[in-house]
Design a protein around this nucleic acid. Structure first.
Length: 278
DNA sequence: ATATCGACCTGCTAGC
DNA sequence: TGCTAGCAGGTCGATA
């Protein structure tokens, strides 16, 4: 489901609700999450206090402090396609609840994920996280200062892949998924089928700005809800009403009126206007 | 290095 | 009504 704006919205919602609170109950479903050390990790955060919540790429990082350990431990959750992370003032069990964290005052954090493409990971400290397979090779954060014109140009010129694939390649740029890749390319008037290396530096600069603007606009709208995504309080996002191309196959382009086209790139539906995007 | 699969899963919708 | 095929905000790994 969720791309950078949705994860960012969830992280902000969590910060409002659980910072400083203590985890006293940990319940996990018996479903596998392919993490051999998870059980030990979960038992070691018993009684921990939530001291920070961050986003890296599409991962939610919950920093936890216990009396027993000097270092902050980190619980990491990835929502996959269908995951939800909910904050509740009481717990009503639902199908596909995989992790339930009970807080001291009867409140709960619930990770629910029907398709189980999501993941839960545990790291004993920041170094362990940075050295991990998942985090070690992550690319640039598009909303950080490091996402400069020069850095983006290096990425584009060094790849002969289709530009949309490059935008979605998390080893190069993180957080941009199937929706926002299509939307940003539309804003920049660039066809998703172009080779990255064929994008001029002028076009690249427009695309870099488009990526930043689309992501920021989506965050300001609380993310995009197609099916599963909701904020931690259960509210849907609003950016789906602002899509210019995503999901609009056959409908008129909002700029020129030509029908929006859909193609498959790396087996993902890709939407664009062949009149506006060259 | 890139492209193209398949895998991992459940649930919803369109079409018969 | 009920079946099936196809599709879905993501990643990872094998193969050509």
């Amino acid at each position: 489901m969720p791309e950078l704006p949705e994860i960012e919205t969830i992280v902000r919602g969590l910060k409002e609700n659980i910072l400083g609170k203590r985890i006293i109950i940990i319940n996990r479903s018996d479903k596998k999450f392919r993490n051999p050390d998870l059980e030990n990790g979960l038992s070691s955060i018993q009684g921990a206090v939530v001291c920070d919540i961050k986003r890296r790429a599409k991962y939610i990082l919950i920093y936890l402090q216990t009396e027993a350990k000097a270092a902050e431990q980190i619980l990491v959750i990835h929502l996959g396609m269908s995951g939800k992370l909910l904050f509740k003032s009481g717990y009503d069990p639902k199908k596909h609840d995989h992790l339930v964290l009970g807080l001291a005052n009867g409140e709960y954090i619930v990770f629910n994920d029907p398709r189980r493409f999501g993941s839960i990971m545990y790291f004993a400290n920041e170094d362990a996280l940075a050295d991990s397979e998942a985090f070690g090779k992550l690319g640039i954060e598009p909303l950080d200062h490091e996402f400069t014109d020069a850095a983006f140009e290096r990425i584009l010129t060094s790849s002969s892949k289709k530009i949309k694939s490059v935008l979605m390649d998390a080893s190069k740029i993180v957080g941009v998924g199937n929706i926002y890749a299509s939307e940003a390319l539309f804003e920049a008037h660039i066809s998703p089928q172009r080779r990255a290396s064929s994008v001029s530096s002028t076009e690249g600069e427009k695309l870099r700005i488009a990526i930043i603007n689309v992501l920021k606009d989506a965050i300001n709208s609380g993310g995009s809800t197609l099916r599963d995504y909701v904020r931690v309080g259960g509210d849907v996002g609003g950016f789906q009403h602002k899509f210019k191309v995503y999901g609009r196959k056959g409908q008129p382009c909002l700029v020129c009126g030509a029908p929006i086209e859909m193609v498959r790139i790396e087996d993902r539906s890709t939407f664009f206007c062949s009149q506006c995007q060259k």
